[in-house]
Write a protein that binds this DNA or RNA. Sequence first.
RNA 1: GCGGACGUGGUGAAAUUGGUAUACACGCCAGACUUAGGAUCUGGUGCCUCACGGCGUGGAGGUUCAAGUCCUCUCGUCCGCACCA
Length: 814
Amino acid sequence: MMKYTPQIIEKKWQKYWEENDSYEPDSSHDKPKKYILSMFPYPSGRIHMGHVRNYSISDAISRHYRKNNFNVLHPIGWDSFGMPAENAAIKHNLHPKKWTYENIDYMRSELSSLGLSFSKKREFATSDELYSKFEQEFLIKMFNEGLLYQNTQSVNWCQTCHTVLANEQVVDGCCWRCDNESELKLMPSYSIAITKYAQELHDDLKKLENGWPKQVITMQKNWIGRSEGLEFALEFTDKSKELLDGKFDSFEVFTTRPDTIYGVTYSALAADHEIVNYLIQNNKIPQAAQDRLLKIQNQSERDRNIADKEGVELGLHVIHPFTKEEIPVLVANFVLSSYGSGAVMAVPAHDERDFEFASQYNLPIKTVITPKSGELVTDRAYTEAGLLIDSGEFSGMNSTKAGSSIIYHFEKNSMGKRKVNFKLRDWGISRQRYWGAPLPFIKCDSCGIVPVKKEDLPVTLPKDVKISGEGNPLDNHPTWKYTTCPTCGKDAVKETDTMDTFVQSSWYFLRYVSENLQDKPYNDEDVKYWMGVDQYVGGIEHAILHLLYARFFTKALRDLGYIDIDEPFSNLLTQGMVLKDGAKMSKSKGNTVDPSSIIQKYGADTARMFILFAAPVAKELEWNDSGVEGAFRFIKRFTNRAENVTLNTLPSIDHKSLSKEEKLARKKVYEALKKSNEIYEEGFGFNTLIAASMEALNALNTQSNEKIWSEAYYILTNILEPIAPHICWEIASEKFNLKNFKKLEILEEVFVEDSMKLALTINGKKRAEVEVEKTLSKDEILTLAKEELSSWIDGKNIIKEIYVPNKLVNIVVK
RNA sequence: GCGGACGUGGUGAAAUUGGUAUACACGCCAGACUUAGGAUCUGGUGCCUCACGGCGUGGAGGUUCAAGUCCUCUCGUCCGCACCA
């Protein structure tokens, strides 16, 4: 009897795969390819169950396609820049680089204990200087093409730590490390002009509809926030122009509801609109109003979101473009300067915010849209479409038609134009950090910002660095930043900001397509062959940021002439979280399960099988120790029964001559094979594939035909190999010399049966079951059914008789 | 508030085109083997009922010979966005 000893056989096969380079892709491009990618890990120190789930899924997919004769690329690497390394440096006085690369070594060994079929020769870390070199080349190109720029913008700043905080590092308005309140500060920083691609990023979501989860597409759509409308200028009255010293004649507003334009009763500006700033700087409004404006200006985004509506009168008026009435201009705290033109036309009768604001400040409310049917309500804003009233020549039109007519009118008379606006903002990539990729620019007093010369790349981090948590370590370094200007040769300083780590993860999938080239990031032929990623697997938490940035980078690199694809990830699978006791596993909650201890106790195959069996891949997975035991027991049983295999090849079997049990066993085995072909095409239902395999083993146990056992293991070790590779390699090599690891044909004959089971139902309710020969006619079957069901029919009228072949008979009685 | 997803046994979950609800597993119960069992094997297990039978996929209606599946309304849970004009 084969004894199941995962600790021994798993080591054995891992060593074998390593020594034979079993999972390196072919360098030739002859075969059809599959690029299977799991989101690369941050080397935090140890792997967690989320990693196990992620890589178990991508590994199963990779192994499946490899056996089906695809050339498979399934790489792994490390997203290795980032703040935890600096925090470790502060806390434990470790150099970030040492901490990071030691973590990588440890996690690499943890991952290999899972038996993952990674293409290891392409492994790299994003903190490798070579990777930075190519990335810096991309960034310089972006800079030269105007896709990367520097400006001064408002950032989250911690006064205590003297550093900029990323949005996600501000927790409840406070610095996540020192807990002091974070504030907004104007600082020079680098931004990538992702907004130039807003339209394409929006439009190309259509191309992903079949390959990406709907939810992710929706989230990206919302984030990009495309909206169509009308942009036009509101002109000041002469008196107001005078107040503004003739500096401003008008300002632009944007609306998605041009049909409501006759309902405009006031206009609102953002608190930091340039006109408002002019009024403040030139002392044109009372001190009290200025104070309130400054207060609103300095409010953090978070405070602003929860604040009540607040307005400040400016004493300015504009002229309504149609009615020529004078309407007041105010500052409203809910108007954002970062969206549209930072100013709105306000229609209180048909916009909730405008209504609330108008009620609060006693501004007029003028109804111009009525519902097509039903009563018009006036105690709140009516925001639906309807019919226009009191709207001059547009009265009587419906909203949609009026909207386009009004835009047409504006365009014809050069008063305004159709406009598309996006919520998406440019991507600020400056971080005042040490452990990040340096920005390859030099600041020169005479020449401004100058890219580092190509031959001087990469710009690398200094090794000797003091990381105290205060200030920017690169800026504080005694010598690092001093250099000379590449253009004029005068003294200059290097840029001391480093890049957001999302820059590295925006193109790592391109680096994998070639094997560690030293002189360029990748070969063009390799990109052509391997891209796009056929299956991307990762957590839903990256639904917006990473996936949007990577999509953008792909398009930008395309336009810069580097690559020739539009979208990087053809298919996306977002796995669910791993929970314990109903909550996400986390150290602070103390509900973690360490993958390594599970592997030690049960083996990697058990861990992998449990995690794929316990829930559908996209759903949350509740960790359950008894469930793990169940997976372990199945693998043990599967191993023990292998003793019934006596033939070392696929036997030929005369199906017709088999007993009922034997036929059923074969059918279950081939059903599992069929399932295994289906799930990789659609849905990745590993849970049902494993269930089908369990059913097959249960059915096999009811008979003892050696041929059937041998055939079954020939097939089952093949289809379970992607899930539990070690034990399947062990059994398949022992019994079949691994000859069964290839595409297997489905024998349709095992599904052909001469009899069928029929449910006998009365009014749709199952009352009996019969097994009948398939040769019986419909009438014979109905007669038989009525006999079987006589006790239910007697004394009643039969109204209808329905026979569905292979399924049921339904007799309708009254 | 807006948008999306989802509600099936004690638990995780199955269920082609509408066609036998609860596959598979966990747990539980009983038995076998055993010095022992938290190992292994066998059988049972939706709920109510002694039984006949009845009821069952969040709830209420509807379509249909037939509804977990389709339609309408409703309740609940989760997720995302959240003053974007």
